[in-house]
Amino acid sequence: MKDLEKILSELEGKIKTIEKESDLNNLRVEYLGKKGCITALSSKIGELPPEERKTFGASLNETKNKATELIDAKKKELDGKALSEKLTREDIDVTLPALKVPVGAPNILENIIEEVEDVFMSMGYDVVDGPEIEEDRYNFELLNIPKGHPARDAQDTFYIEDETILLRSQTSPVQARTMLAAGGNTPIRMICPGKTYRRDADDATHSHQFMQIEGLLVDKDISLSDLKGTFDVIAKRLFGDDVETRFRPSYYQFTEPSVETDISCFVCKGKGCSLCKNTGWITVSGAGMVHPNVLRDCGYDPKVWSGFAFGFGAERLAMLKYGINDIRTFYQTDLRESSTFDRKDV
């Protein structure tokens, strides 16, 4: 029995000095292998008197288990050490630059248009498209702007064929087309963002090509107050819940009454600043009740139907919202600038 205790304490001492897994394996063979010193003792059982055999056997087993435990524990310790050394070797500098995941940015105008589309679609407006080379009939005549009308001069249109074919000077022809296609007997809710063209020399505030976001609602018993409520929704969604709105009388050939729609200045909160030219208000769109002549000419009986139309300048909205002061920004894609818009807005 004394021998067994001695063997164990000797093993314990040896384990303490071991640093390599191979040495531990050798030690395992030395003690627990087929010819190991502990294994060898079991052959001695037969040499003992029968009354001692049982207790010796039990002690031997216990010793075997303890030795195995000691070696296994050391194994675990060595494994842990090896792993932690490996992890240390694999340490990286997490501050080094990442892979540039290629994701593109939207055009700024498309960005703002989608935002407006989203608000109007949530209110049931369809998004409709129309031709940019347009007939005079849709661009002017059906919109209560007959030949010779002074409103035509102001728009300074690019004509392609004398008085018949033109680059559309407004997106309103899409409204006329939509009404005509609807056949005069179904309600309409639509917006038609798109490119328009006028003979303006390009500079920081003028562009011969620009984008309008016009919309139209035709139904029964529609009022100017409904237009005001609708404008409130879009103004707050685009410029914040705390903006106030106001209507001012205005004039457009295809609406009557016509209004200019203002929002309270979101920079100075109405106190007066350079953005609002000290008025506290910023004009963001033109709108009005669809002129009865337009309704009639586009197939809707003005005695039965009424509606409103509105138009935003996409450039103006974007300039206001993002603080851009040169309209050419939208048409010259500077990639150093556009990446700003590859993100979700608040």
Binding site: M123, G124, V127, R189, K228
Partner: peptide, 17 residues
């Protein structure tokens, strides 16, 4: 003027064409 909203059926608009 008081702001009101048109009394029209609720639906979500779609991209046409």
């Amino acid at each position: 003027l008081v702001s009101t909203l048109p009394l029209v059926p609720t639906r979500r608009g779609v991209y046409v064409g």
